[in-house]
Simulated scan of single mutants.
Amino acid sequence: MRRFLRENALSLAFGLGFLLVLCGQAVAGHADYTQQQLTSGGEDPGFWTYVTSSSFGVDVAENWQSEYLQFFLYTIATVWLLQRGSPESKPLGEAGRESDQEQAVGRYARDDSPPAAAAGGLRTRVYSRSLGLVVGLVFLASWTAQTVAGWAAFNAEQLADRQDSVSWAGYLAEPDFWNRTLQNWQSELLAVGSFAVLAVFLRERGSPESKPVGAPHDATADTG
């Protein structure tokens, strides 16, 4: 058990942190939503009613989709785009998918390579892009969930204000949807872009996200 915890500490810590923060968001969101309902003459919807509501769902989904969009774009962009001096970049001059030999696929696969890397053909082509494909699909799924939950929440507000509801396609043209979406996208792009630049000049000793403390600023693809 001790070995398992040590070897999986990163995923376990973030998984536990995710659950704790999600529960905290549910509690805080319920309190805020209840306050809004009481202020407008409504009733306390109850915790579980709120957690299964479109209001909570859209708040969760809009954050998930923006995070997975960040991962998807960064995974794909770093194949082709470089940043001099950043540990998040590949070495200068090595943009692109790289050769089969460099990637250890097909006849260049090692004994300990995943079977899909050695299989060749379509199986290897799909596996060699599987990270981007899966992250992209998760983004699309969470974005779709956001649109559906946001549509339901928007129509609930419309009916409460005695206004006409809108179709799903109509909601996608509403400022409410794009305001929710773009405020998350711009923050993710800013965070990723600024981190790539900050890592050129700043260090975090022992972190694989940083260059070694003594590495020169122009050292690229060097991690500590």
Rank of each mutant, 00 (worst) to 15 (best):
V166T: 12
P175G: 05
Q35T: 14
L182Y: 06
L182R: 02
A116N: 05
Q35L: 11
T52W: 04
D100N: 08
D176A: 15
E188K: 15
W168H: 03
T49R: 03
P115F: 10
A199Y: 04
R2M: 09
L122P: 03
G206L: 00
W151S: 08
R203N: 02
P87A: 01
P91R: 02
S40K: 14
C23N: 13
V148P: 00
L19R: 07
A26W: 09
Q101R: 06
R125T: 13
L133E: 04
I76Q: 13
R129M: 10
T52H: 02
T52C: 00
D100C: 05
G57T: 08
Q146Y: 15
E7K: 09
V126P: 12
S99L: 06
F14T: 09
C23D: 03
W143Y: 15
G41L: 10
W151Q: 08
A221V: 02
F4L: 12
E62C: 06
V27F: 10
S11K: 06
P115I: 13
A31K: 01
D176M: 06
R3A: 14
A215T: 00
A104R: 15
T49D: 09
R2T: 14
Y33C: 01
V138W: 12
E43Q: 07
A9K: 14
Q36F: 13
Y33S: 00
G136C: 08
T49A: 11
Q25I: 09
T52K: 10
A28P: 00
S89W: 03
L182V: 10
A119T: 06
